[in-house]
Design a protein around this nucleic acid. Structure first.
Length: 514
RNA sequence: GCUCCCGUGGUGUAGUCCGGCCAAUCAUUCCGGCCUUUCGAGCCGAAGACCCGGGUUCAAAUCCCGGCGGGAGCACCA
């Protein structure tokens, strides 16, 4: 078999096991490109979130890529909480983020907090000071900013090692926040402004969620990130493009410290049209009550996506299809929807739902009791319905028909419209399918009131979209009551819906997508 | 202002490092058709792109130069 040319092998395979070919195609599509300098079993990646909020789709991209590469090479994947700014971190987010990751289907081989390593960071700081590669700067922040912009060195840069050591000690004890920082002795004339003596450590008085007030001097991202990647054994760290200018700092620090240099890579940020990821934009909307919270179905947080019925697998496939390029793109949500639809379509039970119901009375209506399939192609069972002479159809459908029009109540029988006022009067005209006649969904007198929340883009033209949340009211067939909370179904010709809440006489669902 | 990154159909991506097999991949959207007791899924078909201008070369999406456009950085946030 293997001696045959590839084409012939494929043909043979198609005869023997066609499903294998399809699978092969699918997997090919979602595979990430090979990693440079990667050896099977030796790749180590890491996902380093700051525990300062709920994870969103942007984090998911990073986490999935990191995780996927580790698995691809039978390597190791580390979850590292980059909790080096006590002012921002909150204990609840360590757990919340773990939960979000698990939902995504990501497991990690090792977990730790950067804050647990502060002792080592101090040692490295001291090493830099002793080597003359770092100095304590006591200039005013504004002054530092200006000098950096102009490329001018300040007087602090000339301090000798002993004085720096003494000030470094005093940073740990009595120097107030904002009065002193430890800076890397880079190059104030460098074209890369990131190299103009970046801050390595600063004083933060705030209480840390894990370490309380044990420490008051905290490393910055530049320092902690580089050091942790290196001593953590990470071989292929990824980060988003906006850090690119900091690569030089990253390697410079490791170089001066004599530490191993990982293969650092960057990719573009994920930007979804109408779905802001930034807390700066979201927080005010929550405070003003315009969105419910961080799980509001219009948001791109993982919690919102979950609530909205987006499957973790869809997010994964989507992220992998995006790859690791540096091209900035504004993706539209329908790409995620398309993937999600393919996943849920085969398992979503079909039911009838009519929005803005209009009553239909049928003359000579036969009383019928029958079973309707829960899925047109998959064998997932039936639901039983009973009909008399009263029906409801959606207003959108009702508006289309006039007297003498023939319509088929789907899966039931045909009617002809006889009179239209507040209600539609009609008569039974037979059970045989009539070619070319519209088939519409309906519910009977026995139905359940249903409210569907439908998310639309939160922002339009950069402004809050007042119509970002639609509420669609209607009736669903009673069988829907048996669907569990969290269950995903399809209201035929309406769209996929996730059941969110079941009250006594009312069901609330979330519109997933068409 | 300076520096860096990016620029492939409507959208997203592959290809760009190591020029030819690229009259350019795949997906999505849109359009047409088939199928279907859903306007979903599936199937078939169609349309649609290498930012612009020079240069190098037998040959450029790919290399070089210059524009233009977009993004990022110039934090004691990450």
């Amino acid at each position: 078999m293997n001696k045959l040319p590839y084409e012939d092998q494929l043909k043979e395979l198609e005869k023997l096991a066609p499903e294998l070919i399809k699978k092969e195609k699918k997997e090919k599509k979602v595979a990430l490109p090979e990693l440079p300098d990667a050896e099977r079993g030796k790749v180590v990646t890491r996902f380093p979130p700051e525990p300062n909020g709920y994870l969103h789709i942007g984090h998911a991209k990073a986490a999935i890529i990191d995780h996927e590469y580790a698995r691809m090479y039978d390597g190791k994947f580390i979850l590292r909480f980059d909790d080096t700014n006590p002012e921002n971190e909150d204990i609840i987010f360590y757990d919340a983020q773990r939960e979000d990751l698990r939902w995504l289907g990501i497991e990690w081989d090792h977990e730790y907090n950067t804050s647990d390593n502060l002792g080592r960071h101090y040692q490295f700081a001291l090493q830099l000071i002793n080597q003359g590669n770092a100095y304590v700067c006591t200039c005013h922040p504004e002054e530092i900013r200006k000098n950096r912009f102009r490329g001018i060195e300040c007087k602090c840069r000339k301090r000798d090692v002993d004085e720096n050591k003494e000030l470094w000690e005093r940073m740990q004890s009595d120097l107030p926040q904002g009065k002193a920082i430890l800076r890397l002795k880079g190059n104030m004339k460098s074209e890369n402004t990131a190299m103009r003596d970046p801050t390595l450590f600063r004083i933060v008085e705030a209480e840390h969620p894990i370490h309380g007030d044990n420490y008051r001097v905290w490393p910055t991202y530049d320092f902690a990130g580089a050091v942790e990647d290196s001593i953590g054994g990470v071989t292929h760290p990824f980060r988003t493009k906006e850090y690119e200018l900091r690569d030089e700092v990253y390697f410079y620090i490791l170089d001066k410290l004599g530490l191993r240099k990982p293969y650092l890579m960057e990719f573009s940020r994920l930007d979804i049209e109408g779905m802001p990821v930034s807390k700066r934009l979201i927080k005010p909307l929550i405070e003003e009550g315009k969105v419910e919270g961080y799980d509001d179905i219009r948001l791109p947080t993982l919690r919102a996506l979950k609530r909205r019925g987006i499957q973790p697998e869809a997010i994964k496939q989507f992220v992998l299809s995006q790859g690791i390029s540096k091209v900035e793109s504004k993706i539209t949500f329908d790409q995620i929807e398309a993937i999600n639809r393919k996943i849920i379509d085969p398992v979503a039970k079909r039911y009838f739902f009519v929005s803005n119901p209009v009553k239909v009375i049928v003359e000579n209506a036969p009383e019928i009791e029958k079973d309707l399939k829960l899925h047109p192609t998959e064998d997932i069972g039936y639901r039983r319905i009973k009909t008399k002479n009263i029906f409801y159809i959606s207003k959108d459908d009702a508006n289309k028909y006039k007297v003498k029009d023939k319509v088929r109540l789907k899966d039931l029988y045909n009617i002809e419209i006889t009179r239209v006022n507040n209600v539609i009067h009609s008569k039974f005209i037979g059970k045989e399918l009539i070619p070319g006649v519209d088939k519409i969904q309906w519910v009977t007198d026995e139905h359940v009131e249903t409210l569907i929340l439908k998310p639309n883009p939160l922002f339009k033209n950069g402004k809050y979209n007042e119509k970002s949340l639609e509420r669609i009211r209607g009736y669903a067939e009673t069988a829907v009551k048996s669907v569990n909370i969290g269950g995903i179904l399809q209201f035929e010709r309406f769209g996929f819906v996730k059941i969110e809440k079941k009250e006594k006489e009312k069901i609330i669902g979330v519109f997933i997508h068409k």
